[in-house]
C-alpha cells in the first residue's frame, strides 16, 4: 500500500496530477488499506473461537432450578452441521415446517459452514443473554 502512496506522491511532484487529485487518490488508497485490515481481522477471528458455551444460572428464589454449564467444541458444531445434509427429504421437510411454525423461516438443508462461522463470530463479539423469571441463560463463544 505504501508503494501506491509513493507513486501518487511521485506523480504529484512530477506535475502529472493536481493536489486535489493526489488528495483524492491518497484517500482512496487509505480506505482500501482499512478494508484489508478489517478482512484480516475477520479471518483471524474465524480461527480463534474454540468453544461455544451455554450457561443457565437460576435466579434468587429459584434455587431448586438446575444450574447448567455446557461447553461445545466449535469443531463438533461444524461436524454436526454436516449431518443436516444427510437428512432424508421428508425429515428435512418436517423440520422446516416445524421451524416455520416457530417463526424461523429458513431451509435447514441450506445451512453450511459459512453460517456457523458467522454465528460463532457473532457470539464471540456479543453474547446472547436471556433473562427469564427463573433463570439467566447465556450463550457465547470463546
Amino acid at each position: 500500500m505504501d508503494e501506491n502512496k509513493n507513486k501518487i506522491l511521485q506523480m504529484l511532484s512530477e506535475g502529472k496530477i493536481s493536489v486535489e487529485e493526489a488528495s483524492r487518490l491518497l484517500y482512496l488508497v487509505g480506505e482500501e488499506s482499512k478494508t484489508d485490515t478489517s478482512d484480516n481481522s475477520i479471518r483471524k477471528s474465524k480461527s480463534n473461537a474454540k468453544y461455544l458455551y451455554v450457561k443457565v444460572s437460576p435466579k434468587e428464589g429459584h434455587q431448586d432450578a438446575e444450574r447448567v454449564n455446557v461447553r461445545i467444541p466449535v469443531s463438533l458444531v461444524r461436524a454436526g452441521m454436516k449431518l443436516t445434509a444427510l437428512m432424508p427429504p421428508e425429515v428435512a421437510d418436517n423440520v422446516n415446517k416445524a421451524m416455520k411454525d416457530k417463526g424461523m423461516g429458513f431451509d435447514i438443508r441450506n445451512l453450511d459452514n459459512n453460517f456457523i462461522e458467522q454465528l460463532v463470530n457473532a457470539l464471540k463479539d456479543e453474547e446472547i443473554e436471556i433473562d427469564s423469571e427463573e433463570a439467566l441463560i447465556k450463550v457465547y463463544a470463546d
Partner: peptide, 12 residues
Amino acid sequence: NLKGMIVDVNGR
C-alpha cells in the same frame, strides 16, 4: 470432534 465437550448439570 467430541474432545473438549463438557456437560455439567447441577440440580438441588
